[in-house]
Design a binder for these strands. Structure first.
Length: 684
RNA sequence: GGUGAUGUAGCUCAGCUGGUUAGAGCACAGGAUUCAUAAUCCUGGGGUCGAGGGUUCAAGUCCCUCUUUCACCA
């Protein structure tokens, strides 16, 4: 039965080029879509550029163009990159579209009518020169820990410390250089906290991978915060209908961009939008995303849909990140490789599609692009094994039999390859591409073994064996046809060339049970694919090396968003000195460790019972598990903070803090008093 | 500090609900072959499955502790 399926990939931000990390997702999705289409299902694959937000606005300004001109240019670039990597969207649109404006407004109004919108006055950093509110990323200053200059508002790239923008020393606006001030403003919130019951239910109903559902559990444990969905002018985005000067936060209209892109496709192809998005839709909806934006797709998005009267996603497929040679992509190492740069150097996009597919599975594990392995694998699998089957047999058919086939009636190898169809099918369907390709390569080995065993080059020299020769080679080409069919979701362009070579109609899954008929005429064989020269890869890496200091590490979308959603808290700037009065507020005591034990389930904690001369020993959880065996601690004296507010931890109350020394060289080392100190003595 | 993952041959990875001497590809060694843009076939060496403890007749596979790498949160 033909299914109706709508598939999306995450929307790339219109502020940068597509790189090899992005491509993991688009290639993964494209393979799945092509596979489902080959199965005969109705599939629409839509995507769009994510175009709104402060970074786009500012970049356009810097380049002296309008945001619209910027996103138009990026849209062209992205579209070209995807097309060349054979990522075949049914529609690649933009979130800055009329359809999206209308849908975003409608959804907002429905959320409001359902009582899910609230307003709240918050305090944010404000650039008094530029007259705009500043996201954390646009506040820079000196790192409070290592004092590196020009660090971002949320973390230091030199020492790795994380902090609040308020902690930066000599903070300044990255836009104007002015010192930011705090300013109050009214923001609109989506009352996510009221959606908890619905979301708990939804995230556990099989819509997420197991690991993803576990991850979601964390958010529930901490309680859901209302989601800040507005930004103040100036902002490049959609103005909120009933709130002049307030704009939808980019993440509100981005997922609605999936709908808008599809709406646009409906207009072009006369499809029924509501059939796919109405609350009771019988169609299927799948979102392919990176694990970093799970938060938006598994919490905000389904809640938005639910309370605006729409259907929810059927499933969300999250994948891991790409590493190159086992490490994060890095500009200084030359492994931050753009799609364009790959095309310039390696040329053939199907090599990368094949390699990614060989590595992909249905989990959220990161996948590694090992460049040496990439060359070896592509050369060995695609050229040595797969293409070689045709390359070594087609010549005989063309030269000796005028391109005419004479397949045998019964070939056990062909039967075996055909019978693997279900295994391959299931693997693709479950997004276990690595498994599918392993099976296909196993079959390729069998096919090559068949040719080696029959040795057509020997038969060719024997008198009166023409028919046998023709059969062996025809059968090998039939094997090749089947393998091509299996590989087609991954290698669509190559499959297309092979269809022409074999002179057959475009392969779909039904063609598994067909065969090349007797007397079928094939075209002459021309070499279809060449080996990668490792020098090409070296040149690519070299070309991507940036000698300059690494440009800012892109913060993950999630961190970015969550920070934006947090209100700026009014931390007092720490003074350099404290008074004696401040110090005496801290009640330090000599403590005797009465008992020490491991805490089940805790990574770094030990549970200590500390005697400080009170009736009952204090229970304290200390993060010293890595350095101390509990048994050796019992009986020792150390120092604790006795008047620290008790804190409820996952494992119980912690009624104090043990002091310990550490830095990057080692630790923690707990303190020991000199001989004579007694439990309970005050330290000052 | 918390949470979710992760650690299996030189490299990249399979190993489902625990069950014979732990698998594949690449790389390496030896042999065969020459149809194929040095591709193919056969054979072989190589792993105390991150470390330690436990459950079990039986553990890479379950439990605990420690540890590696990564991500997210604080």
């Amino acid at each position: 039965m033909a299914r109706k399926i709508l598939v999306t990939s995450a929307l790339p931000y219109a502020n940068g080029s597509i790189h090899l990390g992005h491509l993991v997702e688009y290639i993964q999705t494209d393979i799945w879509v092509r596979f489902q289409k080959m199965q005969g299902h109705t599939v629409h694959y839509v995507c769009a550029d994510d175009t709104h937000g402060t970074p786009i606005m500012l970049r356009a300004e810097k380049e002296g163009i309008t945001p619209e001109a910027l996103i138009d240019a990026v849209h062209k670039e992205h579209s070209a990159d995807f097309a060349e990597f054979l990522v075949e969207f049914d529609n690649y649109y933009s979130t800055n579209s009329e359809e999206n404006r209308v849908l975003s407004s409608e959804i907002y109004k429905k959320l409001k009518a359902n009582g899910k919108i609230a307003t709240k006055t918050i305090e944010q950093f404000y650039d008094p020169v530029k007259n705009m509110f500043l996201p954390d990323r646009f506040i820079k200053g000196e790192c409070p820990k290592c004092h590196a200059k020009d660090q971002y508002g949320d973390s230091c790239e030199v020492c790795g410390a994380t902090y609040n923008p308020t902690e930066l020393i000599n903070a300044y606006s990255a836009v104007s250089g002015a010192a930011p001030v705090r300013k109050e403003t009214e923001h609109y919130f989506f009352k996510l906290s009221e959606c908890e019951a619905f979301l708990k239910d939804w995230t556990r109903s099989g819509t997420l991978q197991g690991e993803a559902a576990n991850k979601m559990g964390e958010w529930f444990e901490n309680g859901l915060n209302d989601w800040d969905i507005s930004r103040d002018a100036p902002y490049f985005g959609f103005e909120i209908p009933d709130a002049p000067g307030k704009y939808f936060y980019v993440w509100l209209d981005a997922p609605i961009g999936y709908m808008a892109s599809f709406k646009n496709l409906c207009e072009k192809q006369n499809l029924n939008f509501d059939e796919y998005w109405a609350k009771d839709s019988k169609t299927e909806l799948y979102h392919f995303i990176g694990k970093d934006i799970l938060y938006f797709h598994a919490l905000f998005w389904p809640a938005t849909l639910e309370y605006s009267g729409h259907r929810k996603p059927t499933q969300i497929f999250a994948h891991g990140f790409l590493t190159v040679n086992g490490e994060k992509m890095s500009k200084s190492r030359g492994t931050f490789i753009t799609a364009r740069s790959y095309l310039d150097h390696i040329k053939n996009p199907e090599y990368l599609r094949y390699y990614y597919a060989a590595k992909l599975n249905s989990t959220m594990e990161d996948i590694d692009l090992n460049l040496e392995d990439f060359v070896a694998r592509v050369n060995s699998d695609l050229v040595g094994k797969y293409i070689n089957i045709a390359s070594r047999t087609a010549g005989f058919i063309n030269k000796r039999f005028d391109g005419k086939l004479y397949p045998s009636a019964n070939n056990t190898v062909i039967s075996e390859i055909k019978s693997a169809a279900q295994t391959v099918e299931e693997a693709y369907s479950a997004r276990e591409y690595g498994k599918a390709l392993r099976e296909i390569m196993r079959l390729s080995d069998i096919a090559n073994g068949y040719v080696a065993e029959k040795a057509p080059w020997v038969i060719a020299k024997q008198e009166g064996q023409d028919t046998v020769l023709q059969q062996v080679c025809s059968d090998a080409l039939e094997m090749f046809r089947l393998l091509t069919l299996y590989l087609k979701p991954v290698l669509p362009k190559l499959a297309d060339q092979i269809e022409q070579f074999l002179n057959i109609a475009p392969l779909n899954w039904l063609a598994v049970s067909a065969s090349l008929p007797v007397q079928h005429q094939i075209q002459s064989y021309e070499h279809l694919i060449t080996r990668i020269d490792p020098k090409q890869v070296e040149a690519m890496v070299e070309a991507n090396k940036e000698s300059l200091q690494a440009s800012p590490q892109p913060h993950s979308e999630q961190r970015h968003a969550v920070h934006q959603q947090n209100e700026v808290k009014a931390d007092a700037v720490e003074a350099e000195y404290i008074s004696i009065d401040d110090f005496t507020k801290v009640d330090l005591r000599i403590a005797k460790i009465v008992s020490a034990e491991h805490v089940e389930g805790a990574e770094k904690l030990l549970k200590l019972m500390l005697d400080i001369g009170e009736d009952q020993p204090r229970q304290v959880f200390a993060g010293i598990k890595s350095a101390y065996d509990p048994a050796t601690l019992v009986g020792r004296l150390t120092v604790m903070v006795a008047n620290l507010a008790p804190r409820k931890m996952k494992f119980g109350m912690s009624e104090g803090m043990v002091l310990a020394a550490s830095n990057e060289l080692g630790g923690p080392f707990i303190l020991s008093p000199d001989v004579g100190a007694q439990a309970g003595m005050r330290v000052k």
